[in-house]
């Protein structure tokens, strides 16, 4: 299982090396004083990468433990939360989207509803003032606010 992971990685990296080398062929420079050009370095790296991945395929080593299926689901869950957070970041505005994201993240890391809700409200409001007033970062205020006014 562990060794298989290294083999798959090796094959994927071999593919990456091929892609890097093939793409490099399309870098067209009409005229240049530079005898090396933009191709040589990536092609050289692709060759090194290909050799290293061959070693990995032939002599795979053990690596870390892979998470269980349940953990995988939770990992995807957290990624979805962060993806949706990014999606809503400008649409809902900083405070609201951040509050929602904190609520969901705190819940998925084992907080009770009450604790998660308190963390979300306190952290979203405090960081809003910290970022916008102390650090003077311009944060998205949200389209729904502009729609109202």
């Amino acid at each position: 299982m562990m060794r298989a992971a290294d083999r798959i990685l090796g094959i994927a990296l071999l593919g990456l090396a091929a892609f890097v080398a093939v793409q490099a062929q399309s870098f067209y420079v009409p005229f240049s004083y530079d005898p090396v050009g933009p191709k040589a370095f990536p092609v050289g790296l692709a060759i090194i990468l290909a050799l290293l991945s061959l070693v990995l395929i032939l002599r795979p080593g053990p690596n870390g433990q892979w998470p269980s299926a349940a953990t995988c689901c939770r990992l995807v869950g957290v990624l979805v939360i962060m993806g949706v957070y990014a999606l809503l970041f400008t649409r809902l505005g900083y405070t609201l989207s951040t509050g929602l994201a904190i609520l969901c993240l705190a819940r998925s890391f084992g907080a009770s509803w009450v604790k998660a809700l308190v963390t979300a409200v306190v952290m979203a409001v405090v960081t809003y003032f910290l970022f916008s007033d102390v650090l003077e970062i311009s944060l998205p205020s949200g389209q729904w606010l502009t729609a109202l006014s």
Binding site: I102, L105, R107, F109, G110, K115
Partner: peptide, 11 residues
């Protein structure tokens, strides 16, 4: 606790 730390890192 993690449930404070992780949201803080994310934000």
């Amino acid at each position: 606790p993690r449930w404070v730390l992780v949201p803080a890192i994310a934000v």
